[in-house]
Structure formats: C-alpha cells, structure tokens
C-alpha cells in the first residue's frame, strides 16, 4: 500500500536535500568576514524603516476566513467530480443545492462589501 507513495517520499527527500545542501555548502565554503554593514538587517535590498513587527489589518483575517470556508466547499466538490458519471438525478440535485446554498453565502458577502478592500 505505502509502496504506491514511494514517489512522494523520493520527491519530498529531493525537495528537502536541495535547500539543505545549499545552506550547508554555503556554511562550509563561504568566507565569513562580518562587519556592521554586512550583518545589518535589510529588506528588499534596502535598510528597514521603523519596526518590522507592525500590526496587520484585521481585514486579512476576514479574507482568510472566507477563503477557508470556500476551501472546505471545494474539498466537498472534488469527490463529486470523480463520481459524477455514476450519480443519479437526485444526487445531482443534491449537489446543485449544496452549491446554491454556498452561493447564497457568497452573495451575502458581496452585498455586505466584505470582498471590497477598504
């Protein structure tokens, strides 16, 4: 059973080895002559302005929550896509109702302006 997923293991191992190799090689091969300018914290090539620990807007969280809910919806839709050809009419109607109920939620969000960036 698990043998079927050997390729995932191999891929994960390769994905892990490449960055680790880059860090380890850099550690051993790179010369270390630190001075204040080299060790300074920088952001996108320039020195940081102010505190890097800024408070983010609460709206990110709302967008995150909405994303999570539709994430769950899509997870439920995925098995239907696979079983689609074998489903009866009743089941298809159930799927349509499922999507319609959640579409209602999307419409409410839209009307209330939760999708707008203030």
């Amino acid at each position: 059973m698990l043998q079927n997923y050997l390729f995932v293991l191999i891929l994960s191992t390769v994905a892990l080895i490449i960055p680790v190799a880059a860090i380890v090689l850099g550690h051993f091969l790179g010369p270390r002559r630190p001075d204040p300018i080299k060790t300074a914290t920088y952001e996108s090539g320039v020195e940081t302005i102010g505190d890097t620990w800024v408070q983010f807007r609460a709206q990110y969280y709302l967008i995150g929550l909405i994303f999570l809910i539709f994430d769950v919806e899509v997870i439920f839709l995925f098995p239907i896509a696979l079983a689609f050809e074998r489903l009866s009419l009743l089941s298809t109607l159930a799927v349509v109702t499922f999507v319609l109920i959640l579409l209602l939620g999307l419409l409410v969000e839209w009307r209330k302006g939760a999708l707008e960036w203030e």
Binding site: E73, I80, L82, L87, S88, S91, A94, F98, G105
Partner: peptide, 23 residues
C-alpha cells in the same frame, strides 16, 4: 463522492448550511 451524495445527502446539505452560518 458516491457515498456522500447517495447515502448521506441530508448530512451534506446540513454541512452546506453550517458553512453558510460560518460564513
């Protein structure tokens, strides 16, 4: 997919309502 939308139709519709309430 086969089981959810044959045997557990009621449950899946309630999940939809639950997600709507969460939203």
């Amino acid at each position: 997919g086969m089981t959810l939308f044959t045997r557990y139709i009621l449950a899946i519709e309630m999940v939809a309502i639950l997600l709507l309430v969460a939203l």
